[in-house]
Design a protein around this nucleic acid. Structure first.
Lengths: 340, 340
DNA sequence: GTATGCGGGACATTTCGCGTCCATGGTTGC
DNA sequence: GCAACCATGGACGCGAAATGTCCCGCATAC
């Protein structure tokens, strides 16, 4: 059943909303037994006119009977509600979680895709699709878009398509080298995105494990300085979230640093910053690019998934710079468990 | 899956159309591999602007990629089409049949509900629901509505609901006594419909097995004459269709008549007329009310279902007075088999 | 070079959704 | 028996979205 709904959602995204709306109305009438339009409208937070349109529709469908003193659901309506219930439960399950997580972390929007990225690659693809769609919606006009690396971001890049604003956009890596393998580096992701959307890209090559001295002289270079300026002026950031220790090992940090991360309780990682359970920054990768303090006027989209990452995602969100969060069902469930 | 679609069809009837439209567009693009907007628009019988809207939508959904020399479906689009196929087959299966039957018999509209009334009572109920809905759509203004008897018509009556035009309507039996049991008589059906819709009803009591002489004096009665006048002036007729021999036996016709019906090749029965395979009237029940020749300016809705009735339905349709046909899938399949 | 068909921008028009107000009628409380 | 109240349903007008129409720049084919 869920599969069918997912398919339909792709071809008609507002259908689900409609379904929920009509179900809610019908359900509300059912529990009220006999209720008037105004009363119903105010208890459903709808304007009377909109509700009226819906009621008229439900009436012509024979699901509702209107009498002189209010309306009640018909027998057919009763039956429909009954059949509808499991579907609604499933539908509301995710959107309920979306709402709760949104409010718990003060986000603008949360999107949950069904499944567990840890288990199935198709969920990860779905996550990418949803992330790409969130970016498309966010990018109403051309501008600079900074991205990070990682396999999830790679999926996001793969699902981007050309739209007018994206075509005029400039994709840049949020930060310089972060020790990832080439195909998952932020630079690579930025270039894939540019290719997929028809936009431009600029790269920031900062070799890993650079000494302080060499680093200072590097960022004095006019070309590097300029691209860093561009990055810090970005309008939209799209980033993944990783587990601190996993990321540290993948980036081959030295034993010393890893021990310190452990001692500091580092749990999550996002564009080179390590966060502890309370969302405090406990470590920072030595490379150039976007800093957390540059995020004042920037819209931030976080994309991550998998049961194992639930806690990490919550940590990063506690720092609180994100506006839009795209996660999968497993991560969402995990986050909910830690909310209470 | 079908159950879900049925539920959704009730809550959002145009959703299905939308789904089909978008699928058709996507599918068409897929088989064309690379195609332009104008070409596509004309081959899909759409105006360019409408198609453009759809294409723009599909593009933002990432299902479509637009290049300078045309458009193609994206990878995600391919996958979606694949997943969509069984759903569409089901959707189109019925509506394809609807169209074929509509054209084969020159009808205005054919509605097929899934299932077989012979097998499951719920299909019969569904048939009733669809019949009631067809009547509701047909009755845009108040007027006289003539109905026949039978279990299917009983279901139609049960699914009627009050609407403004129906409230002002007058329900009458299409013909007088036809030897049915009381609860399935046309008179009863008419009164149930009036009760369900809040409309009026008039009855026509013509005892069965009346001698010619008594009959003549009966129809001279001013009250009877008046109601017959009303009936003959009906604006909408809703009738069931039966198998000739089954009906003849249920009505306890004498052996003689039944033999003659058999000899004449009577196959189907509708409001007291018996039709052979070619749609010729071979017998007529001796009672008062609506005659076939009164149907010139009348909209006729036929409601029937069950595999066993497929042939009979086709016979009656060959006579050719119907405008709207409501049947079930089994009857439709059976009719299709006899079409070739 | 030129002709054709492409996507996409622009604009007028129409349609539709929706906010708002009101008439009318049934129900209830006094 | 009457008045106050809440109901539905009709009417109207505004503003946004859908759509018909035209055009432009561009890539490709001939």
């Amino acid at each position: 059943m869920r599969a069918i709904l997912e398919i339909q959602k792709q071809l008609m995204p507002d259908m689900i909303e409609m379904l929920k709306k009509r179900y809610t109305i019908l359900h509300h009438i059912q529990v009220s037994r006999l209720v008037g339009r105004r009363t119903l409208a105010s208890s459903l937070n709808m304007t009377e006119r909109v509700l009226r349109g819906e009621v008229e529709f439900l009436k012509t469908q024979g699901l509702l009977e209107v009498e002189s003193y209010g309306m009640r659901v018909s027998e057919a309506g009763q039956k429909l509600l009954e059949q509808l219930e499991p579907m609604i439960k499933e539908l509301f399950g995710l959107s309920d979680m979306e709402k709760q997580i949104r409010d718990a972390f003060g986000l603008e929007k949360v999107i949950i895709v069904p499944g567990d990225s840890d288990q199935s690659p198709s969920t990860k693809k779905e996550l990418g699709r949803a992330g790409a769609s969130a970016l498309r919606k966010m990018a109403q006009e051309a501008g600079v878009i900074a991205v990070t690396g990682g396999s999830t971001m790679h999926e996001v890049a793969n699902h981007l398509t050309p739209t007018t604003p994206l075509k005029g956009s400039l994709f840049v890596p949020a930060r310089g080298g972060l020790g990832e393998s080439v195909e998952l580096q932020a630079n690579t992701i930025a270039s894939i995105m540019a290719k997929k959307t028809g936009g431009q890209y600029r790269l920031l090559h900062v070799p890993d494990h650079l000494g302080e001295e060499a680093y200072q002289s590097l960022i004095q270079d006019p070309n590097i300085r300029e691209i860093i300026e561009v990055i810090r002026d970005t309008r939209i950031v799209v980033h993944g979230i990783g587990e601190a220790i996993v990321m540290a090992k993948r980036r081959k940090l030295d034993r010393n640093t890893i021990d310190r991360l452990l001692a500091d309780g580092a749990l999550a990682e996002a564009f080179g910053y390590y966060f502890d359970r309370e969302g405090r920054v406990v470590h920072k990768m030595p490379t150039a690019g976007l800093r957390l303090e540059d995020l004042q006027n920037t819209k931030v989209i976080a994309v991550a998934g998998g049961r194992s990452k639930g806690e990490s995602i919550a940590s990063v969100l506690k720092y609180g710079k994100e506006h839009v969060l795209v996660i999968d069902e497993a991560a969402a469930t995990e986050m909910m468990n830690h909310l209470q």
